[in-house]
Design a binder for these strands. Structure first.
Length: 574
RNA sequence: CGGGAUGUAGCGCAGCCUGGUAGCGCACCUGCUUCGGGAGCAGGGGGCCGCUGGUUCGAAUCCAGUCAUCCCGACCA
């Protein structure tokens, strides 16, 4: 490709509405342009990287036995009504009507459509297992799209759906996808972790997220220092504390705490550690008040609590509800004398003589004790794990924390959709059975963005070869000089013939300008052709990542580029 | 949806408080010079100052509404 005839509108200045580095660099590098909030044009350079990821995904999905198809973006409401998600999904589902007033939505995911297809076409156990996937545009009307391709409303996703005769077979399908995902992200050259995750609104019984490690990641994840346990903080299990305090219960005591509402204020005022307090949170679960108890220095994990309560909605109660439930303004709630469902975190179980609110303005209790002073409905793990917590799976390991960008998610769905949509098959005995499903997503655009988050410097993007838009750029310093032009064209032809994706910067621009653009768009290898070095029969070969420069002959440059590219592309394929 | 902010040339911004015929840098076009890390000089083109209404002799500027975008939060995969 000749740069002068191609379309790479780079910009020097950082657009003001881009916050994270990948968004800034993709805009500056002419990879994407915004059309509306969370909706982007993919320009040629951006599209090339997207296609690279798609192709890796495609190859690995095919290798794992999945079969590609393509489903529509527009989906009829009736399918969603049948699964129950028309009501459940909320505003994120973009709905509209056609001219006949029939309701439709733009597909945010395709469980309904694929299950509908399979229930109509699959009748026998002989047709299973089956795994179908597509790479396609999705639309989710996110409340707050941000960070460019990282959280757009329209985005490209690979979604696969597996269908099996029973749970055991479904587990095999799940494991195949899990392994395929590992290969995919390895081939993309990403540093990532597979973590246990909550299933959220997709539902199902088990899931793993694939997280690209990056400071700017929206998710907090933990991993064990000793074993291979890793989980999203939303899901990470806290192990019940071994240490129970053995202090004798002291007498309950009411103390004045004027204006001291937060845990920090109360602990400071009473000169005790925050861990000696129990925080009392009032929430509404499906609009019924529920009280959650946590050690003062711990945080509530709403997802865990929601799962334990089995409710559809869970939110922090407003001031009015707090007053109604506790009889006091916020900041003075406590479990003593409360008439409500109380869920206490496991860490509260071993505590003795702790401080809580007294359900009266400006008053707290000291020396509160479980059982004697109040009763708990349920003990459960409802807190967020913290750095240094013991690993829930092994002895001796502790938890470390990271930030990650979710680029893939695999779900074991079970029969949630197949039951709702009556997707069944006849087994060998002629008996009707429900199909077991799994679903598996990869955010294609997000993977490219995550890659940039992980691979950049002050000059721009540093693409790994497997997903770089071009492998090599030839910076021809002055195409008007015959020697430069001829050498550049020769290298260009040799590399292109060898299957290297090469961009020839033949523009009538100054050298500095070309170097800046080459760095910005992150082409991994650069050959600089200038008349000075050509006089010695040499060109300059530079590695974008290491900055390493070598002066070599044209023949050597071509060979080195060829072998570097083929080595990088082979990695992870064996 | 709650809080905060911003809409002025393709991009980045100033002007607004204190109303008086719209400016800077980059980019773009022409010419000359330059040519190994985003060149210099000279000349030039480009604006419904987000939109609608109001106040005023006069509005980019003041007021009201509206739309859009961004940030924080809640929400969500």
């Amino acid at each position: 490709m000749r740069y002068s005839r191609y379309f790479i509108p780079t910009v020097k200045e950082t657009p003001s509405d881009a916050e994270v580095i990948s968004h800034q660099l993709m805009l500056r590098g002419g990879m994407i342009r915004k059309l509306a909030a969370g909706v982007y044009d993919y320009l040629p350079l951006g599209l090339r990287s997207i296609r690279k990821v798609e192709n890796i995904v495609r190859e690995e999905m095919n290798r794992a036995g999945a079969i590609e198809l393509l489903m529509p973006t527009v989906q009829p409401a009736e399918l969603w009504q049948e699964s129950g998600r028309w009501e459940q999904y909320g505003k994120e589902l973009l709905r509209f009507k056609d001219r006949k007033d029939t309701e439709f939505c733009l597909g945010p995911t395709h469980e309904e459509v694929i299950t509908d297809l399979v229930r109509r076409e699959v009748k026998s156990y002989r047709q299973l297992p089956l795994n179908l996937y597509q790479i396609q545009g999705k639309f989710r009307d996110e409340i707050r799209p941000r960070f460019g391709l990282m959280r757009g409303r329209e985005f490209i996703m690979k979604d696969a759906y597996s269908f099996d005769v029973d749970e055991k077979a479904a587990d095999i399908s799940y494991d195949k996808m899990y392994q395929a995902y590992r290969r995919i992200f390895e081939r993309c050259g990403l540093k990532f972790r597979a973590v246990e995750a909550d299933t959220g609104s997709i539902g199902g019984s088990w899931s793993h997220e694939f997280m690209v490690l990056a400071e700017s990641g929206e998710d907090a994840i933990v991993s064990c220092t000793a074993c291979d346990y890793a989980a999203n903080v939303e899901k990470a299990e806290a192990r019940q504390s071994m240490v129970a305090e053995h202090a004798d219960p002291r007498e309950l005591e009411k103390v004045a705490t004027p204006g001291k509402k937060s845990i920090e204020e109360v602990a400071g005022f009473l000169a005790v550690h925050e861990s000696s307090l129990v925080k009392t949170l009032v929430l509404l679960a499906d609009n019924e008040p529920v009280v959650a108890l946590l050690r003062g220095d711990h945080e509530l994990n709403e997802i865990k609590l929601k799962n334990i309560l089995g409710c559809d909605t869970l939110e922090m109660a407003g001031e009015e509800v707090v007053i109604k439930v506790t009889g006091a303004p916020t900041g003075f709630a406590g479990p003593v004398g409360l008439n409500a469902k109380i869920v206490a975190d496991l860490a509260v179980q071993g505590m003795k003589n702790f401080v809580t609110g007294a359900n009266a303005k400006d008053l707290h209790y000291k020396n509160v004790n479980l059982g004697r002073d109040f009763a708990v409905t349920t003990f459960a793990d409802i807190r967020n794990v913290v750095l240094g917590d013991p690993c829930p799976r092994c002895q001796g390991g502790t938890l470390e924390m990271w930030r990650g960008i979710e680029v893939g998610h695999v779900f074991k769905l079970g029969t949630k959709y197949s039951k709702a949509l009556k997707a069944t098959y006849l087994d060998a005995d002629g008996k009707e059975q429900i199909i077991f499903m799994g679903c598996y997503g990869i955010g294609i655009g997000r993977t490219v963005a995550a890659c940039i988050e992980q691979n950049h410097d002050e000059n721009g993007i540093i693409f790994p070869i497997p997903i770089a838009p071009f492998h090599c750029i030839i910076s021809a310093l002055n195409m008007k000089e015959d020697v430069v032009r001829e050498a550049s064209e020769s290298i260009y032809a040799q590399l292109a013939d060898a299957g290297v994706e090469v961009l020839l910067d033949d523009r009538d621009e100054r050298p500095g300008f070309k170097f800046k653009d080459a760095d910005l768009i992150g082409i991994p290898l650069r050959i600089v052709v200038g008349s000075k070095n050509l006089a010695d029969g040499k060109v300059e070969l530079k590695c974008r990542r290491s900055g390493e420069v070598e002066l070599v002959t044209i023949g050597e440059a071509v060979e080195k580029v060829k072998s570097a590219v083929s080595a990088a592309l082979k990695q992870g394929i064996q």
